[in-house]
């Protein structure tokens, strides 16, 4: 049953040291505000899962919250490297980071298998490349009907999924629109979940008969955090701040500029800052 919570309560209750956490979002609806709260609460030894770790995973890694990363593409899209991720992998700063690397197809299948309650995902993939040599969790299985050899990897079963969505209603049902990524699968594959939303409304009102909705009994905490995906975007509320993604390259390149930015913009701020970042665009949208 979803509870309408504050962000600090939700993270305190749902995310624990040593947890496996999937903060998902495929470019769209990335839960930045929730991740900042995890950093502020000083979570340690996390295993993070994400198809496309980007700025927010760079921040979690650079702040020493993460021991292990399960991923398929780690970069600043269209800009370049994640400098904190690279510093952790190449130099062990601020601590060593263990990688479990997959392809997108594998990750998407593993979330779906997790949501479906299966122990593993089976798909046609990883043919001929080196990935299976560096990831012992990539196995082959034989189709019992055709004899075709297929790839198998374990299902994702995170302790907790953290996502951002456009709207929740008073009962805690959550509606997502636009680029959907793997958020529905991530929530349904996880033991616990936290969903931050742009708005909590009385009722969703008229909608498509096939709207993507996560029912309240699949979610533990719903938190209203207007602007909570910034500098990612929330379709219908505010656009992706591509210029910030470009700026991140300079901020994160050196350890001291990174730490200074984190202090001013994360450690000394709260979730209400996100409403400010997106105020103008949100006012026009609501």
């Amino acid at each position: 049953m979803a509870r309408i919570s504050s962000l600090s309560e939700a993270i305190k209750d749902a995310v624990r040291d040593g947890d496996t956490v999937a903060l998902e979002g495929f470019t769209h609806l990335i839960p930045h505000a929730a991740a900042h709260e995890i950093i502020r609460q000083g979570r340690k030894r996390l295993t993070l899962i994400r198809m496309t770790p980007d700025l927010i995973y760079d921040q979690l890694i650079g702040m020493g919250c993460v021991d292990r990363l399960i991923f398929s593409w780690g970069g600043n899209p269209g800009v370049g490297s994640l400098h904190r991720l690279r510093d952790a992998v190449e130099n062990g700063w601020p601590q060593k980071l263990e990688l479990e690397e997959h392809s997108h197809a594998a990750m998407a299948n593993a979330y779906e298998a997790g949501a479906a309650g299966l122990p593993c995902a089976i798909f046609r993939g990883y043919i001929g490349g080196d990935m299976p040599k560096v990831n012992p969790k990539i196995k082959r299985v034989i189709c019992p009907f055709t004899g075709e050899e297929l790839a198998a990897i374990p299902a994702h079963r995170p302790d907790v999924a953290v996502i951002h969505a456009q709207r929740a209603d008073k009962a805690g049902n959550v509606m997502i629109e636009g680029v959907l990524g793997v958020q529905k699968e991530a929530v349904l594959a996880s033991k616990r979940s936290v969903v931050t939303v742009e708005q909590i409304v009385e009722d969703f009102g008229p909608r498509s008969l096939n709207a993507v909705i996560l029912p309240h009994w699949t979610i533990q905490h719903v938190v209203a955090v207007p602007g909570g995906a910034f500098p990612s975007y929330a379709q219908g509320y505010y656009a992706r701040n591509n210029s910030f993604y470009k700026k991140w390259d300079d901020i994160a390149r050196e350890r001291d500029t990174f730490l200074a930015w984190m202090k001013t913009n994360v450690l000394e701020k709260g979730p209400e800052a996100f409403a400010q970042y997106t105020r103008k665009q949100r006012a026009a949208a609501e």
Partner: peptide
Amino acid sequence: PKVRLPGGGGAPEIAT
């Protein structure tokens, strides 16, 4: 690694 690149993303299965 000398340089850690972003990784495969969709490429391994796009390629086949």
